[in-house]
């Protein structure tokens, strides 16, 4: 009976969650002060937010929420201790290519740890988790980007699609893409 996310579950799983939570809580305060990272950089082993947001915006050409970014940055900093170096390297490649969108520089990211880091960041924003293992914490659901490409037709489950009986059998063409 060891469910990692339950509040009445054994201690070892609670610790895992508290560890992430601790980082998260520290970052709630941080998120309120967008670029005031310096004060916290010494207390939590994590990623500076501005850099994380910069690389995220280059890898994902959509609107990204700064508060969610703050939580992801902290969590990824804990889960991937060398992520800051990888992000620095990816940013170098992006700047070299004068990149505005991900297609401008992604092919030049070498396979291996840099590409893995890039895909991990993309996956985090899209799925709202940084690990799909049992017990992974959810940083975004309503704002998880993977629900956006089909959002003109299907609802994000547990949210209303319309008023009562306000939906019908028509659907937008597959070639459309919602703006997000």
């Amino acid at each position: 009976m060891t469910h990692p996310l339950r509040d009445d579950c054994p201690l070892e799983y609670n610790l895992f969650r508290r560890q992430l939570l601790g980082g998260g809580i520290a970052f709630i305060g941080l998120a309120a002060v967008p670029y005031g990272v310096a004060a916290f950089a010494d207390t939590v082993p994590n990623m500076p937010l501005p850099k994380f947001m910069e690389v995220s915006s280059l890898l994902i050409n959509h609107q990204l929420n700064g508060d969610v970014g703050g939580r992801l940055a902290t969590a990824m900093g804990v889960a991937y201790p060398d992520i800051e170096q990888n992000i620095d390297a990816i940013l170098v490649i992006a700047r070299k290519n004068n990149a505005k969108i991900v297609e401008d520089f992604y092919p030049d990211i070498p396979p291996g740890k840099l590409q893995d880091a890039a895909l991990a960041i993309i996956s985090a924003w899209y799925s709202g988790v940084i690990s799909e293992e049992l017990g992974s914490e959810v940083y975004a659901y309503e704002l998880a980007l993977m629900y956006q490409p089909a959002s003109d037709v299907m609802t994000i489950p547990s949210y209303a699609i319309s008023g009562p009986n306000g939906w019908n059998a028509s659907a937008a063409p597959l070639a459309d893409m919602p703006k997000f």
Binding site: L5, R6, L21, D67, Y141, E142, L143
Partner: peptide
């Protein structure tokens, strides 16, 4: 505006 940006996932899954 929404609190989900910070609230989502914080409390995990609870039964009480």
């Amino acid at each position: 505006s929404s609190a989900v940006v910070t609230l989502r996932g914080q409390n995990g899954v609870r039964s009480d």
